[in-house]
């Protein structure tokens, strides 16, 4: 169970103040966040991950408190154990697919990390690009590596920021299958930001529509 109740003010362009005020709670499974750009979806993901801090409020995952302004808790980003898939993947450009994935594995021996990375490669059907650098991969392959890397640290929650916006329509449907089966295996909450209505309908067990920094509509199963 993920519980969100956060407030934050941002200075946007032309010094206009933007207020984010979001509260909802969802269970494991898919939660799709939709809404116009600049509504606060990415900021919310970044708050859950601990990249930015809310001004006030609470973020809890199960019994773990990620953030609580009243109790002055702000767990470090490294300790939160989230799997983050960035919009442009943010694959380390100087590392191969295997190295990218092994980077996230929490094992002290490098042999163990490699074994786990190879396991992830085969789970996502990308063994053939194991030794390729990100710029030698197609968009869909990069996306799979990003997903494998995010899940290789066995996270407690996965945060996906428009993960399919950069791949073509044919690849998109295959990747949606992969993402669904990854969630099925991991059994953790997947928070999925998208602009695409088809993706939202297909994945949205829970759907939250965010506009102007607020929850404008929510369907929670």
């Amino acid at each position: 169970m993920l519980t969100i109740d956060v407030k934050k003010s941002f200075h946007k362009q032309h010094d206009r103040l933007f207020h984010l005020d979001l509260s909802f709670s969802v269970n494991a499974g898919f939660t799709v966040l939709t809404g116009p750009s600049g509504a606060g979806k990415t900021s919310l993901l970044r708050m859950i991950a601990g990249i930015i801090a809310p001004d006030e409020g609470v973020i809890e995952l199960g019994s773990t408190v990620y953030f609580d302004s009243e109790r002055r808790i702000d767990m470090q980003i490294q300790q939160r154990n989230v799997g983050f898939v960035f919009q442009d993947y943010a694959l380390f450009p100087h590392m191969t697919a295997t190295q990218n994935i092994a980077f996230g594995v929490r094992a002290s021996a490098s042999a163990d990390r490699r074994v786990k990375a190879e396991e992830m490669l085969s789970l996502f059907h990308i063994e053939h690009i194991a030794d390729r650098l990100p710029h030698e991969m197609s968009g869909g392959e990069q996306q799979r590596v990003a997903l494998a890397r995010a899940l290789s640290c066995e996270p407690r929650i996965a945060l996906l920021d428009e993960p399919l916006s950069a791949v073509d329509i044919e690849t998109r449907s295959k990747l949606l299958d992969e993402i669904e089966s990854a969630q099925d295996r991991a059994k953790i909450p997947f928070i999925y930001v998208t602009h695409n209505e088809a993706e939202a309908t297909r994945l949205g067990t829970n759907r939250i529509y965010i506009r102007d920094g607020r929850v404008a509509a929510a369907e929670i199963a």
Binding site: A49, I51, I77, Q78, Q79, A90, F103, R149
Partner: peptide, 21 residues
């Protein structure tokens, strides 16, 4: 790109390790 560093932090790596690697 700071996203690379952020990605490394979310994968549990500290500041020094992120800087070096």
């Amino acid at each position: 790109n700071t996203d690379y560093e952020t990605a490394s932090y979310t994968l549990g790596k500290g500041k020094l390790e992120t800087f070096l690697r």
